[in-house]
Nucleic acid binder design. Structure first.
Lengths: 376, 376
DNA sequence: CCAGTTTATGAATCTTCCA
DNA sequence: CTGGAAGATTCATAAACTG
């Protein structure tokens, strides 16, 4: 068979739409016709490489991601894997297609660099800020409260799909930013196996895929997910009237995903309504007043009538009369009260006047106007 | 000169503290003694196309970036530059030192991958979420509303500095997360040149450095910034009682930075002090509680809710339910837990009330005031 | 049935000292 | 260097449970 005949044959072969394909994603992508897919959403293994067990302070054990599919011998092996699946993905993307990849600091730098090396063109990196992340139990690092997504077109010349107005509308009329605050997937949305355990260790929330697909695909587009898992990409694609192709190696995941997809119904064309975000007053920690230079470490604060004094420290705590702690704790201690609202209790002096520190909080909140607050 | 002599010479040479060094950061870092710096904060050039002054092997200018070969050459040059300055930075870091690098999607993936390649160990990637970013005027992408910082220690084995309690305090008692909401630098903080234009295109806010330095250095530490610009790192370091070394090639930036630094005053010592971690308190063996007569041999201890009991022995061990050992060992055994903090687990009875034995440790520590405790 | 309390759990590169 | 012991450490949410 000549090369041309082969290409015609694969081009003529219809795409296996709205199905879950079983097997290795690189092989399967290589078997699909080139330039046939509008968007790829990929959630590849993160290469976490966890060592021992981790326990919460209450001694319960954290159920870690220790699955075989996340084991690599090192960066070289992970890079080689990344190179291969990205190349396969690029081949099947239409010239004006785009890709999303999600990851954490363990793998995202390697993925991002390889995307650039292969000629993909990054439009944005998008931060999924988790409203309810797992804390850092040992207090040895910052709470790992986000994951990173890279949105890139096939090449710099691609005229990629971007539904600016739809995203703006999703965001109450304000231009959508590169940081998205969404809760992690749990509760009723989280799929369980027969034992009641989570069916997949890293199921993504549908809200994330909703925003990706509304923003960067059109109805009727073909969306491929090479690491389909329990099928969040397929579920949201089906709801939104996009066609999907899922690829998944593990039979257990495919089974859960298929059941899930069978239950999904496509939204009515005009019923793609989204749950509206409620505006809550954002919480402002007192430390931000210090960091922003509105008060300086060492500055004195006074209670009403100057009966009590305290000094501001660089970490946003106060020290007054040998008592250290938050603005609320120190106020309560000095008053002998069970509690105290430090924001209204403490004042600073400016040009001979006593000004409540709550003024500073209001200034910070005013600066935050126009921000996107968390949905729900 | 032999190698040993050379090493002695550089080791003996005093560090040029609290000065701005003029020149190429790679050359200057290579002239500093090895393992001499506690923290590096780096804000390297971001843009791959507009900067012709990077370390480019061919010294040619990239005209069009739509050419695949040209694009790779651009990345290769940037990677080479990144490799060189990171290696120079790593050499001068103390074994337990750490580095922060800030960047955007244009360069951060390449920097992150190279950090990992050189053996740096990433603790967190941190998102600076801008509360007032510039909107995307053409509506072709999402508002680029954040930058990414990588925090990494020199190696996996490094016992890096992390002031957990101070950062928690800055956040009003809640563990600090990996996403930091801070405004961009403008208003009075933004430095202007003689024409009233901004003195530096990417001046970072002092609030950002405040959080970095409070969280990951101690007073007296040496902080080096190889891309000093207008000196935000030095300014905040000086305020917080840290020593700095700035490196900057452009005379105009050095001049603005030096004027800025001359105006800065250091905060009071007790304002710079931050909330200490418990681990830094002097260790008190439980036996001292017995020796000092605060508990008597034979006295009963109880877990919360009195589910478990144990009896104190004269040597400071416990015996409960046939288990003998330390307060920690017996607590862990009775709970079937891998470990247990006996200080907070066990309680004694006084006048009908249950009191945690940690109260007794605090009393002993208070009595030890004035004694010499370990530094920091 | 409602309100308040307790329990379970989530992509995690999660200790430090001393013998 | 390794091994053993001390001992420090959690936030948001939902479901289950109690009164």
């Amino acid at each position: 068979m000549t090369k041309i005949e082969d290409q015609r044959a694969t081009a003529a072969r219809p795409l296996p739409l709205n199905r879950i394909l079983a097997g290795d994603c690189i092989q399967i992508m290589n078997s699909l016709p080139p330039e046939s897919v509008d968007l790829i959403f990929a959630d590849p293994p993160y290469n976490l490489q966890l060592r021992g067990d981790l326990h919460r302070p209450d001694n319960s054990r954290v159920d870690a991601v220790d699955d075989d599919w996340d084991q690599f011998s090192g960066f070289a092996a992970y890079d080689s894997f990344t190179r291969d699946w990205l190349a396969a993905a690029r081949r099947i993307l239409k010239p004006h297609g785009a890709i999303w990849v999600i990851g954490s600091y363990h793998n995202i730098f390697r993925v991002g660099a390889e995307l650039q090396n292969q000629g993909f063109w990054i439009m944005n990196d998008v931060i999924w800020r988790k409203s309810n992340p797992m804390p850092n139990f040992r207090g040895k690092r910052l709470t790992n409260a986000h994951e990173t997504m890279i949105w890139a077109s096939r090449s710099e010349a691609s005229r990629y799909t971007f539904n600016y107005e739809a995203l703006k509308s999703l965001n109450e009329g304000i231009q959508m930013r590169s940081d998205w605050v969404l809760p992690i997937c749990n509760g009723g949305e989280r799929l369980k196996d027969a034992n009641g355990d989570k069916a997949h260790p890293t199921q993504k929330p549908e809200a994330l895929l909703h925003r990706v697909l509304v923003g960067t695909t059109n109805p009727g587009d073909v969306v491929l997910d090479p690491f389909f898992g329990t099928g969040t990409t397929g579920a949201v694609a089906k709801m939104l009237g996009r066609d999907f192709i899922g690829i998944e190696r593990e039979a257990a995941y495919r089974e859960v995903a298929q059941k899930r997809l069978d239950r999904i119904r496509r939204f009515d064309a005009d019923a793609i309504a989204t749950t509206r975000a409620k505006r809550a007053e954002p919480r402002v920690p007192f430390g931000q007043v210090i960091e922003r230079g509105m008060l300086r470490p060492g500055e004195q604060l006074y209670s009403i009538g100057s009966r009590h004094k305290a000094k501001v420290r660089a970490d946003g705590s106060l020290i007054g009369n040998d008592v250290k702690g938050s603005i609320h704790q120190v106020g309560a201690a000095l008053e002998g009260a069970p509690s105290c609202n430090g924001w209204t209790y403490w004042h600073f002096r400016r040009e001979g006047k006593m000004i409540p520190i709550d003024i500073l909080r209001q200034q910070i909140r005013a600066e935050m106007q126009g921000e996107v607050t968390r949905p729900n």
